[in-house]
């Protein structure tokens, strides 16, 4: 009994301290020490993809509805923010918020089939969002403000007269948004809405019996998930790429986000960040590795193919050996470390 309570306090203390420590690290230590390369090539895409993964995990991990159209909602978010910023003169955070609302509205429309369809039929119908949005954004010049190539420079991030166009500024901006949304999602999934969502995932009929508003829960999940993914799209385009183009939000991006939550672990927030980190760092590592080992003898196309094979294999291996993803591995690791520390 005392052992248990001692463990509980220690674990509680650890998590109680972990969050401020993590915040201090991310908000203070990283901007002071990280090189521009690390910020630009690793941390900025990592933050945007983590946020997208968070949105998809809400829908797929907690809600059990598989979506193959995440990149479409990223595109909606990015283009909506660009157009609100261009045409309304509102401050950027408001434009980003409105972009989230726009993505939620579109997500709601494409979530309607979920009321009738399940499983694979739904997964395939989310592809409709992917193709329709990409087509609409390239077809109608209005979205890209008449730019002939469809590629537009993203606006400089400006907050209360402060220009955040350096790598550190964009990193802090992105990090603040990701941190805020993560806290929000954490509150939602550990609150009654989250429980409803999980109930609908695990047994829809039973959930209905005990009075869970199934239709509303599903639609809210779609809207919220799309909104978060939309904001992730804004971060991807505004803070990482600094251009807005429909081509970057293709089906491969949708799969990438799905892979993030499979590798990281479905229905865990921590796992999403771990998965995103792996997905971002892994191609860079592979590139470095092959450059070091073969000294440029292998051309870039070949590396790209190897990357695909290794990525696919990783997915299959995770599904077979660790369906709960990196998050579960981390849990086991910390439990073991704790055991060592005590014994």
């Amino acid at each position: 009994m005392t052992a248990i309570s001692a463990f509980a306090t220690r674990a509680g203390l650890a998590t109680g301290l972990a969050l401020p420590a993590l915040g201090l690290l991310a908000f203070v230590a990283v901007p002071l020490t990280a090189s521009p390369y690390v910020l630009e090539a690793i941390l900025l895409p990592f933050l945007a993809l983590s946020l997208a993964g968070l949105g998809l995990n809400l829908l797929t991990g907690y809600g059990g509805q598989v979506s193959l159209g995440s990149a479409a909602f990223m595109a909606v978010g990015a283009f909506a923010a660009y157009n609100f910023d261009l045409r309304s003169g509102l401050p950027l955070p408001v434009s980003i918020l409105l972009a989230g609302v726009t993505a939620a509205a579109i997500g709601l429309v494409f979530g309607l089939p979920s009321l009738r369809l399940r499983g694979f039929y739904l997964a395939v119908s989310t592809l409709a969002a992917q193709f329709f949005v990409q087509w609409a954004l390239t077809k109608f010049a209005w979205f890209s403000n008449g730019s002939p190539s469809g590629i537009i420079a993203a606006p400089v991030i400006e907050l209360a007269g402060l220009r955040l166009d350096g790598a550190v500024g964009r990193y802090l901006f992105s990090l603040s948004i990701v941190a805020a949304v993560t806290l929000l999602v954490h509150r939602i999934v550990s609150g009654p809405e989250g429980v409803n969502l999980i109930a609908v995932r695990d047994n829809e009929t039973a959930a209905r019996v005990i009075g869970v508003p199934v239709l509303r829960t599903k639609l809210v999940a779609f809207a919220l998930s799309s909104a978060i993914i939309g904001v992730a799209g804004v971060l991807w385009a505004f803070t990482y790429l600094r251009t807005v183009e429909p081509a970057g939000f293709n089906l491969d991006r949708s799969f990438q986000i799905l892979f993030i939550i499979i590798i990281g672990g479905l229905a865990t927030l921590r796992g999403t960040f771990l998965g995103a980190a792996l997905i971002v760092v892994f191609p860079l590592l592979l590139g470095r590795l092959s450059a070091a080992a073969f000294d440029g003898l292998i051309d870039a196309g070949l590396i790209k193919l190897t990357e695909r094979i290794v990525l696919g294999t990783t997915i299959i291996l995770f599904l077979i050996a660790e369906p709960n993803g990196l998050s579960a591995i981390l849990s086991r690791l910390t439990a073991r470390l704790r055991g060592i520390g005590r014994g």
């Binding site: 598989v66 695909r308 696919g312 997915i315 599904l319 077979i320």
Partner: peptide, 21 residues
């Protein structure tokens, strides 16, 4: 079935990459 579907998604990456490699 969803797990198996995601596995075939990974499989498609492997086969595509291998075919071209």
């Amino acid at each position: 079935p969803m797990t198996l579907f995601m596995a075939t998604l990974g499989l498609s990456y492997v086969i595509e990459g291998a075919a071209q490699l």
